[in-house]
């Protein structure tokens, strides 16, 4: 099975005349995890918001699970789910009520059961009936991710899902993501932690100056580093070295070399 779950072609988007995305091309194969890397302000969140039908693109075409995002946004919304960069939960409701609400809105046949399952999966059972306003940042984030999983969407966007989590919380989220990928969910993940991309992603894409600079597996990206540099490093160079080398080198030459 090698169908494309997310496909982006020539995506252009600017804010008040300031270009952010200048022609993004990206394909994510169904059932794989793609990590999108990029400096602050590179446009990662913008790309995800366009794919989640929250913002209209200025040009280009995108399709998610086979549905064009402008022609059939409803099907896109049915097939996908978003965990935004900042947790979007209802502070006045309890964790359980938040999950049940989302389950009802996703027209789940058994909203109570769906909420119960996710509370267990995300270790939120003890806090389930407390107001979310009293949750710690990590608990809030876990609830936020759990809310995105209601109804098992085929495509999941996770915008910096582990920012603000402690190492244990991060490990939990990683485990969840791996399980999702194994179950066939397509995940588009943005992250500031290159280690996270190394650990989880089938493929990695680097967004730089409004375009996708490179895409490839971790091994393919490693191969891009000039050999001279590799020699100087005792151990296998990390993704961080690759990322810094590529984004500093400027787009032109590197893009050609792939």
């Amino acid at each position: 099975m090698s169908t494309t779950a997310i496909s982006v072609h020539g995506l252009v988007k600017s804010y008040k005349g300031v270009p952010v995305l200048r022609g993004v091309d990206l394909d994510v194969e169904a059932g794989t995890v793609l990590a999108l890397l990029g400096a602050n302000g590179a446009g990662k969140t913008t790309l995800i918001r366009v794919l989640a039908t929250l913002q209209a693109a200025d040009g280009g075409t995108c399709s998610v699970a086979g549905h064009d995002i402008t022609e059939d946004p409803l099907s896109v919304r049915k097939a996908s789910s978003l965990t935004g960069q900042f947790a979007a939960v209802d502070e006045i409701l309890s964790g359980r009520e938040n999950l049940q609400l989302i389950a009802r809105l996703r027209h789940h046949s058994r909203p109570r059961q769906a909420a119960e399952d996710l509370l267990r999966r995300f270790a939120l059972q003890e806090a389930a009936d407390r107001r979310v306003g009293t949750y710690s940042g990590g608990m809030r984030r876990r609830l936020d991710i759990a809310m995105s999983l209601v109804g098992d969407p085929a495509v999941l966007y996770l915008d910096e899902p582990t920012t603000g989590l402690d190492p244990a919380g991060r490990a939990e989220v990683w485990q969840t993501m791996r399980a999702l990928a194994d179950a066939g969910t397509t995940v588009l993940l943005t992250t500031q932690y290159l280690e996270e991309a190394e650990q989880l992603a089938d493929r990695i894409a680097i967004l730089h100056e409004g375009r996708i600079l490179v895409t490839g597996t971790l091994a393919e990206l490693h191969a891009l580093l000039p050999p001279r540099e590799v020699e100087h490093v005792q151990k296998q160079p990390g993704l961080e070295d690759v990322f810094l080398a590529l984004t500093a080198a400027g787009s032109g030459g590197m893009e050609e070399s792939l």
């Binding site: 919304r77 935004g84 947790a87 502070e91």
Partner: peptide, 13 residues
């Protein structure tokens, strides 16, 4: 402010 409107808008509601 809380971003929950965006969450709802990204869902088939």
């Amino acid at each position: 402010q809380s971003g929950i409107i965006d969450r709802f808008r990204s869902m088939p509601i």
